[in-house]
Design a protein around this nucleic acid. Sequence first.
DNA 1: TATGAATGAGTATTCATTCAT
DNA 2: AATGAATGAATACTCATTCAT
Lengths: 194, 194, 194, 194
Amino acid sequence: MSPKTPEQNARIRAESRQRIMAAAMHLFARDGYERTSIAGIAREAGVAKGLLYNYFSSKEDLLRTLILEAFSGGDEQIANLVAADPRSTLRNLLKWFFDEMRQRPEHWRLITEITLRVDKYAFVHELAKAKMEEYVQVLSRLFAQLNYTDPLNEARLFVGILDGIGVEALVLKDDYPLAAMEKFLLKKYCDENK
Amino acid sequence: MSPKTPEQNARIRAESRQRIMAAAMHLFARDGYERTSIAGIAREAGVAKGLLYNYFSSKEDLLRTLILEAFSGGDEQIANLVAADPRSTLRNLLKWFFDEMRQRPEHWRLITEITLRVDKYAFVHELAKAKMEEYVQVLSRLFAQLNYTDPLNEARLFVGILDGIGVEALVLKDDYPLAAMEKFLLKKYCDENK
Amino acid sequence: MSPKTPEQNARIRAESRQRIMAAAMHLFARDGYERTSIAGIAREAGVAKGLLYNYFSSKEDLLRTLILEAFSGGDEQIANLVAADPRSTLRNLLKWFFDEMRQRPEHWRLITEITLRVDKYAFVHELAKAKMEEYVQVLSRLFAQLNYTDPLNEARLFVGILDGIGVEALVLKDDYPLAAMEKFLLKKYCDENK
Amino acid sequence: MSPKTPEQNARIRAESRQRIMAAAMHLFARDGYERTSIAGIAREAGVAKGLLYNYFSSKEDLLRTLILEAFSGGDEQIANLVAADPRSTLRNLLKWFFDEMRQRPEHWRLITEITLRVDKYAFVHELAKAKMEEYVQVLSRLFAQLNYTDPLNEARLFVGILDGIGVEALVLKDDYPLAAMEKFLLKKYCDENK
DNA sequence: TATGAATGAGTATTCATTCAT
DNA sequence: AATGAATGAATACTCATTCAT
């Protein structure tokens, strides 16, 4: 008789929104942004096409939302990896990275693909640049503490290594020796006896 | 009006084909595969849309042809980089890589983008895997000659580094310090005094 | 919480209904029937979309209601314009018409637009025809009293003039010399010395 | 074997374009611009939806083309109505107008509807204003030659009359006494004995 | 009485592909 | 070998309407 309470509506909205975002993330990651249709996302989410536009103003707005959330979600997690000594921090970071590659490869595939299509989605350029610089700065300090002679470029190299391994693991999938590389890098960067 | 000789026809065919491929490569690289239209390729090539289907059975077939050629073209060039001593070979390789990133970034953007869309274009998976293994083997031998303790993984790391720097340079464009990284890597891998 | 009395309910109903109608009239007039959305009307009226369907069975029903009311509303006003002598009645009529064009141009734009879309909204045809004949009859009597030789066609002409000036004023807006035409027609039809 | 000659193509294109324009004119006029779908136009024209976009960049572009053509077509015809003496010119004009209303009512319905929806299609405002002023000027000269005391406003009135009768004839259709009004106006404006 | 989340048919537009010439 | 007019399935997006609360 009486309309739904604001709380009920908020919950319903949050749920629908979440389902749509999860479906979109899955499909964007699996098939790429361009190859994913709104109809497909709606079907995957189990809602009608039109509902999507109650929550996102366009397909690109949905993408933007996912990207922003992915980037900011990453930030929090990385903040948790910082340890007392630099070598442990590096170790945590490497372990986190390889775990992610094993557990959410599709998620990272999307991030990588979108990041490469920079021209079309200009906001990504700024975002990626800011993140990159942030990571390089943090790593640079770590390498300085470890007395590397050129910590800035070591930091850039380290980021590049992770990026490169990421791309290769995404392409070669089970054929890429993730475990071996993890061990190798842990030894190279975190071995106390070195 | 007069019937053409078989030789003339062959030449004409080769030329048209080449123009179409050049136009397609340019546009695929600049705008991405999905965002490039057959009409656009035909316009860029200065031919009619229909002609395209005399040479390629579909848009994807055209893509496939370009990818195959790009990969095999790379092979030849890399073969030329091999020098007498391993350190010079590494130096040539690094210099070639950084030159390519400076001169044909869009070309490599396409290769990278397509390579990431592995599921859709399954043939790429095999191709990429074969190339990767080939490169790793060659590099592995180089690192063995240079007495690295784990030459196989060093080779994988090296390939990963180039991949990663490539991705970052493509994303950050002029904001990425290509020159600094080139110098840094040349010192790290090719400095005789080390 | 406490159950409302029937009187309260009736008042609430009347108010909601009125707000919806006012909002719809405003938007239909400003943007046209097709370009106005139910969502927009609800927003303008400050009610939920669903409520609209408690009072009107469809968008078209809402339109119909507005049209009927506009026509019958006009009747009342026009009845008040009748004066003792025919020339004064004509003068009142002209003044009322030009005042309306100045004060509620959008209202008349809607009436005109809808009236033209006769096929789609068949009920308008009958309505318009009935009104037209009624006006022509009244005017015809006026012109007969003023000893015009062909009062029936003079009446039709007079109605046509008002319609025509209405359309032109709606199209040309501030570029149409409403004041000059008002003066001109008053002189033509109501000048005692003529 | 050989491709179509440019002449063949030009003819084919002109024909298709014409069929699409005729279909669009018909449907826009009958159902209104908003209620007419591209699919409907294509069906009426007997072509595929896509073909429409080979000739017009959008639905609005198609409308614009039709409007411009309708306005410029009118110009030519009206130029032919000018006669040696002003009374004959007026007679030609009135006859032309009533003939048009009898023969192409739907055409004029479209012009009127679009002209009223000025806000959305700003280019119409300018067009209509220019035409109106042009007609008023020509008529003003005619009325001056006929020694009317206020030729400018007489001209405006005359244009208004035609507009008004047009609107009413469009709405009332066969119920509007077009013939009677024609005779009445011819007598009023063109009777030599008056 | 009133709400607003949800639906799905409908819209304009794009584009790979075909085919008569 | 080459053309480009034509096709129609697919796409993102809109919006009147329903209905559980």
